[in-house]
Design a protein around this nucleic acid. Structure first.
Lengths: 111, 111
DNA sequence: CGCACATATTGACATTCTTCGATCCAGGCG
DNA sequence: CGCCTGGATCGAAGAATGTCAATATGTGCG
């Protein structure tokens, strides 16, 4: 159950309802972690925009399961997608999800 | 000790260092909460772009201290500023801080 | 078929966050 | 001066989160 449509405007434009705030906070919380932020960044900047856990693990002082856990959170939030290629599982960033956050946090236009 | 300069590019453009990730995560975590998200939204959309705790409290089923705590987190993250006007304390959103997050989360340009 | 390798899941523990009640500080007013 | 009101701070209880070791799943190869 990934979830709802999505607010398409900035939170500074119109007041957020409780439900909207909770849904948005859920996605933001997924990205509000140093490890997941770096994971996202590493995946996005990796050649081809894809990376497997093996590539990523070497960048962290964390165990495999921990990396896997963080990727699961990102996946659950719809921020990354995966494809299985033989033994490896490739992860990529979902641009639309990121764009939604970027728009939601945009400051009010100083018209 | 608010902190460092600020990454001015999207996390999808260049790989984040550990320090950058932590600093950015710190600010994101401040905003990744339903209550604080609504607080920010309510302040921004309030007439004049300002609001005092008294205005905000009525929108929540939370006690005064809790609202105060959340505002403190937002203030510590540099997302809102305050001015004392007699007995009331007015809060406003810092557009630059929000803009920084918005830019950091922007998806990679599909050139 | 069975082993080896890449990643996911589970269960447990420590840490951090949210919220509250009680208390404290600051400014206006009688 | 004394009190009331708008807010902040403190300390504690409960829930959520990050991390690990151990175990499970699935894929390719001999």
């Amino acid at each position: 159950m990934p979830a709802e449509p999505a607010s398409l405007a900035s939170v500074t434009e119109t007041a957020l309802s409780t439900a909207e705030a909770e849904e948005l906070a859920h996605v933001l919380r997924a990205i509000a972690d140093p490890v997941r932020l770096r994971l996202l960044s590493l995946i996005a900047t990796h050649p081809g925009g894809q990376a497997c856990v093996y590539d990523l693990s070497s960048e962290f002082d964390l165990t495999g399961p921990t990396i896997s856990h963080h990727l699961k959170v990102l996946r659950a939030a719809g921020l990354v997608g995966t494809t299985r290629d033989g033994n490896r599982i490739h992860h990529w960033v979902v641009p639309a999800s990121l764009a939604r956050l970027s728009i939601a946090l945009a400051p009010k236009e100083s018209v």
